[in-house]
Design a protein around this nucleic acid. Structure first.
Lengths: 335, 335
DNA sequence: GCGGTAAACGACACTCATTGTCGCATGGAT
DNA sequence: ATCCATGCGACAATGAGTGTCGTTTACCGC
């Protein structure tokens, strides 16, 4: 792309900044030369050395003082977005952060911090001294469970192995605290259930698909040379649908239930299904009709209303609720 | 910052790209000159005009053909991160997206798309043809309610008014479908409850704080000149704590409950509280002890287990659960 | 329709930032 | 100790980027 007014230098410098990895990883000027050449920038190594030194005066770059220099962004370098973040996106990040705080492992959540900082900066730039902190909140509508503590490196390794479709070696702590070591973990998929992160994988030479809690790994080391083995006919969606994670997908049913008016209020605004209908009853309750899947979660959700709901149809579900209620009473029978 | 080897041009071009807003907004070369000058780059307007034309050959920029040209990034322009996204962050975005899909209004969720694209690109760059799509899933651990449909412009306007602490005019549809018009909405805070987004605001000349469902706004127009009025002694946290959103914060209690073993399994890994303890009982159940807040959500969560849980302490809560169970049975009494 | 104003743009010459080359210093490996 | 690769200072060449100026274009008020 050599032309008059091409700003080739500027474009190359931007590409240089893009190619630089963040701290733990580094890149040598030689490698950088190849990468840039692949993007159409053919320059001398000397120029790249100079550029890196120059750029490091304006951006938080650093290099290990090794012989083939390894350059990288400093670990806490701010993120610069092109185009930079607009207020609406900044708001989305703020709100997302509120939602995610109890849902994502802490180390993954921390990955968003530079973006949140970018959001604040994007706002601060335009003479708005204001901060979101005083202006957005979340009111939990579920019980806040503590997300498991985790290890940043291990999650990163597992994610990278999954991505690169290679194995990793690992030590793992069982539910009963027994420690096991695996020579080859063949990662198949990551599954989130609430805040819990599961890895589906086959182990060593075995064929069966196992669920491993990511936060139970004690160590994980990438084996880039060891390609992952994929079991024949593995179908992630089918695995989940069939109940691999305790929540098998149920059949669609036509739910009819009577709610106390207050209890069902927010159903108006966040409906259960697209075809949901709510009509007033004579006794002050409301009748909800909706097509939903017949799952354990549905029961759990209905039970949460306590005596605030009465299932009318289907009859089987009504019977089940009634039976559950009787067993609850029995639980609390006087001794 | 004029110096030998300063790469002043390149730095200025990067800053130019940063200052360019995304599509609906535009910036004129004149304004750009002032902005750049504020960052220490003093150049002729002619140069900026040239730069913009040059840059638009390499980046998706466009200008309305108005007389003072308005330049901007094209609406679907990809995001370039400096430093670019690493695989672990890309993974975090993927997982976050899974969590957020049912929680954020669609138009806010869409704000993340460029970042997800950047994530894919970051991976694709390093010869990994691989896509996350087949490898990450979420298993919902709550009933999936439909997030309300919303309007991108209205959310953006509300967010911006909140941020800039100015009013906006609006038309609003009440719960009972009556339409109201407000000359001045004074935005105080945004509150998320599940997927529902509420604006706390005072209206026109009134002093009382109202809750407005953002997705019920029919229109919203920013009034940048009209500064927001803040009621005296408004305390967002206090407002929520006192039950402004139906979930008043309860007193800490010492919960003791017996769970069926299977039901409590995941409590091991995502505890209720930091001091939670779980011990086996003789009858095959487990005894959970934890300090939690005595809230409606707690009841709702406990009820969800149906007969799978028995609250032992505190006595008041036990009595309440027992009473609820009796009323449930009564609900389902044979006609 | 018409003149006035402001912005955009083409042309051009100047200059200095950027680059490749070369030579020397440094440091690790054989 | 020697060799090789790398980093870096110096320097000269050149051409990219800049300000200036003059012309063209579009818009606005009268």
């Amino acid at each position: 792309m050599p032309d008059r007014d091409s700003h080739e230098t500027a474009l190359r410098l931007i590409e240089t900044l893009r190619q630089l990895p963040r701290y733990p990883k580094v890149i040598t000027p030689q490698e950088l030369r190849d990468r840039l050449a692949a993007h159409g920038f053919k320059v001398d190594i000397r120029t790249i050395q100079r550029n890196l030194n120059d750029l490091s005066r304006y951006y938080p770059l650093c290099n290990d003082e090794k012989k083939p220099q390894g350059w990288c962004w400093m670990p806490n370098a701010d993120i610069t977005d092109l185009p930079s973040m607009d207020p609406a996106t900044a708001l989305a990040f703020r709100l997302a952060r509120l939602h995610l705080a109890p849902l994502l492992p802490a180390t993954l959540l921390a990955r968003f911090d530079p973006y949140l900082k970018a959001a604040d900066r994007a706002l601060g730039d335009s003479d708005l001294t204001y901060r979101w902190a005083d202006k957005v909140r979340m009111v939990p509508n579920g019980l806040a469970l503590r997300p498991p503590t985790d290890n940043a490196e291990i999650i990163a390794t597992v994610g990278e192995a999954l991505l690169r479709e290679c194995c990793f070696t690992a030590r793992y702590r069982n539910r009963d605290d027994a420690e096991r070591a695996f020579q080859r973990v063949h990662p198949l998929a990551l599954v989130l259930r609430g805040p819990a992160l599961y890895l589906l994988a086959t182990l060593d030479d075995f064929e069966d698909v196992r669920q491993l809690r990511v936060h139970r790994f004690l160590s994980a080391d990438l084996q880039p040379e060891q390609p992952r083995r994929l079991p024949e006919n593995f179908d992630l969606d089918a695995y989940i649908r069939k109940g691999g994670f305790e929540y098998p997908e149920g059949e669609p049913i036509q739910l009819v239930a009577l709610f106390q008016r207050g209890a069902a209020r927010h159903l108006d605004e966040t409906p259960l299904s697209d075809d949901q209908r709510i009509v007033d009853e004579d006794d002050g309750r409301v009748r909800l009709t909706a097509t939903v899947n017949d799952t354990a979660l549905l029961r759990w959700w209905l039970l949460g209303f306590g005596a605030g709901v009465e299932v009318r149809e289907p009859a089987a579900l009504r019977a089940e609720m009634a039976e559950t209620a009787r067993r609850m009473v029995w639980r609390y029978r006087p001794a």
